[in-house]
Design a binder for these strands. Structure first.
Length: 492
RNA sequence: CGCGGGGUAGAGCAGUCUGGUAGCUCAUCAGGCUCAUAACCUGAAGGUCGGAGGUUCAAAUCCUCCCCCCGCAACCA
């Protein structure tokens, strides 16, 4: 039972923002869920460091390019710490292992690679080709003059993979998610694929293409290869195959095409196993507007985590919208979620039940459930199975909805059973009710653990539960000693 | 006529295939209850279902036309 999940490797050209944190946390949640469910997991993230833009940024900053990459890559590593990523690997495309892996991948593409020339409108000032339709009055969008250029380039025979790709999408309808994105990709491929220029000779900040002096690899070959590098390519092919077969690439919608079209074609050509799914997530606006530096509404993940705490942010990002769609990040909405969902529903449930257990001197376990307690107990024990189905579809929003159904049911159960009255009138009934509630709280803690590891940890600690595996849910409590709880999401 | 998705209560969405009193979650208001960071129960307010026409006893749902929004449209990480 092997499972692999990846984030995009982040381009070191800019600083981390909430979008990076979002993709990373999504992958982290999937990874943590699978680990709790007993799978061997490989969760990888990292930074993409080659390409003309990085070289130029380094120059603009007056820094050596290697040094520049060290500094910016570290920012993403720091972000990972701040949002408690449980990644097993952090890859940098400038690492030796990756350079070797990319070059080997290139060699394996050989039968589909040929040398030709690439031509187009080139802006010397911007150092890039400008697509014909982007020209403004015969100039680059930046206003720079363009000239018709031709340069030698290696090409990948992408056109040869059109039918194979379409057949693959047909046979694997869930390869691209969400479904709306799949349609975009399929219609893109159907419209006809052109061969892909995969080398550059105008700059040298890249991985040298094997057997092609003066050429470095097109950054996307280099970047995509990170996924197999991290799994041990080319030395450990067996592991690469096993992991890729059950691998989810979490990507932003803006880079879906590279992952859903080019990457499978490269893998087919190289004779490697294709990933199980490409999941394209949506984008966040901020307070109803597109995030932009000039408006000043770019959400800095570390700042917002410091202000509201990590778990509330991790919760909000996946509760507020369906994973795969766009959403709006607003502090009002965030505060509402914290107050209503976290403090009032979850926090209060744990508090009212565990405080009560303390008050009567500890839980006296009784599992002889009757018709009153049975439904709650069954829902608690069945929660993980329901979550499994949803998590396999990366329906993170649905999973949280399912957990909150159990929270809400538990709160209703307390209100109906009135344990404070049972304490005076019917102690054995009270024991049944509290046992059922402790069962549900434990199940809820496991359910939220992938999303809010710290909060789950606190509940596990209150209840002296290890919290390492979903299997613990199926073990009956045996007159446990609990610790006095404290509010999980205190209000001012 | 490039391809695709969508316009339903303050917000987010379901319902459209297989016509029949317009629904869910959250938010709002009133009353009840109170073990708790409170929750729960009961009731209420709020929509000409993008627009116009048509079919039908009956249309959010079928047909026609129109308006608006949003993706994708290749070497951009």
């Amino acid at each position: 039972m092997k499972f692999c999940v990846t984030t995009p490797i982040y381009y070191v050209n800019g600083d981390p923002h909430i979008g990076h944190a979002y993709a990373s946390i999504a992958a982290d949640i999937l990874a943590r869920f699978k680990r709790l469910d007993g799978w061997e997991v490989h969760f990888c993230t990292g930074t993409d460091e080659h390409g003309i833009k990085v070289a130029r940024s380094a120059e603009a900053a007056g820094m050596d390019v290697n040094k520049f990459c060290d500094v910016t890559s570290q920012k993403f590593r720091d972000l990972g710490k701040a949002i408690k990523l449980s990644n097993d690997d952090f890859i940098r495309t400038t690492e030796e292992r990756h350079i070797a892996s990319s070059r080997e991948l290139w060699r394996r593409l050989a039968k589909d690679v040929y040398k030709d020339s690439y031509s187009g409108w080139y802006s010397a000032r911007d150092e890039e080709y400008v697509p014909e339709e982007d020209l403004v009055d015969g100039k680059a969008p930046s206003g720079a003059p363009v000239e018709w250029m031709e340069e030698e380039s290696y090409f990948f025979r992408l056109s040869a993979y059109q039918d194979r790709l379409l057949e693959f999408y047909e046979k694997n309808p869930d390869f691209i998610a969400p479904a709306s994105r799949r349609n975009e990709v399929v219609s893109f491929v159907k419209s006809g694929l052109r061969d892909l220029s995969i080398s550059r000779s105008k700059f040298d900040w890249g991985i040298p293409s094997p057997d092609a002096p003066g050429h470095v690899m097109y950054v996307w070959i280099d970047a995509l290869a990170n996924y197999v590098t991290s799994l041990g390519f080319p030395e450990n092919i067996e592991r690469v195959s096993e992991m890729m077969a059950n691998c989810i690439h979490v990507v932003g919608k803006e880079i879906l095409r590279f992952h859903a079209v080019y990457w499978p074609a490269f893998l087919m050509s190289a004779g490697l196993t294709l990933p199980k799914r490409i999941f394209a997530h949506g984008w966040w606006t901020s307070e109803g507007q597109k995030m932009s530096k000039s408006i000043g509404n770019v959400v800095d993940p570390q700042e917002i985590v410091e202000k509201y705490g990590l778990d509330p942010i991790r919760y909000f990002l996946f509760r507020e919208i369906r994973f795969g769609e766009d959403g709006d990040f607003s502090e009002n909405a965030l505060r509402r979620r914290i107050s209503y969902d976290l403090a009032n529903d979850l926090g209060n449930l744990v508090q009212r039940v565990l405080t009560f257990v303390q008050k009567i001197g500890g839980l006296r376990v009784n599992y002889d459930f009757g018709a009153d307690e049975r439904p709650l107990f069954d829902d608690s024990r069945n929660l993980v199975e329901k979550l499994r189905v949803l998590m396999d579809k990366q329906d993170l929003n649905g999973a949280l909805g399912e957990i909150w159904r159990l929270i809400s049911f538990s709160n209703r159960f307390v209100d109906h059973m009135k344990p404070w009255e049972l304490a005076k009138t019917n102690e054995s009934k009270l024991d049944l009710v509290l046992t059922a509630l402790c069962e549900s709280i434990r199940a809820i803690a496991f359910g939220i653990a992938p999303f809010m590891p710290d909060t789950a940890g606190k509940i596990f600690d209150f209840m002296n539960v290890e919290g390492k595996s979903f299997r613990e849910i199926n073990v009956n409590f045996t007159n446990p000693t609990f610790k006095p709880p404290f509010p999980l999401f205190p209000k001012e």
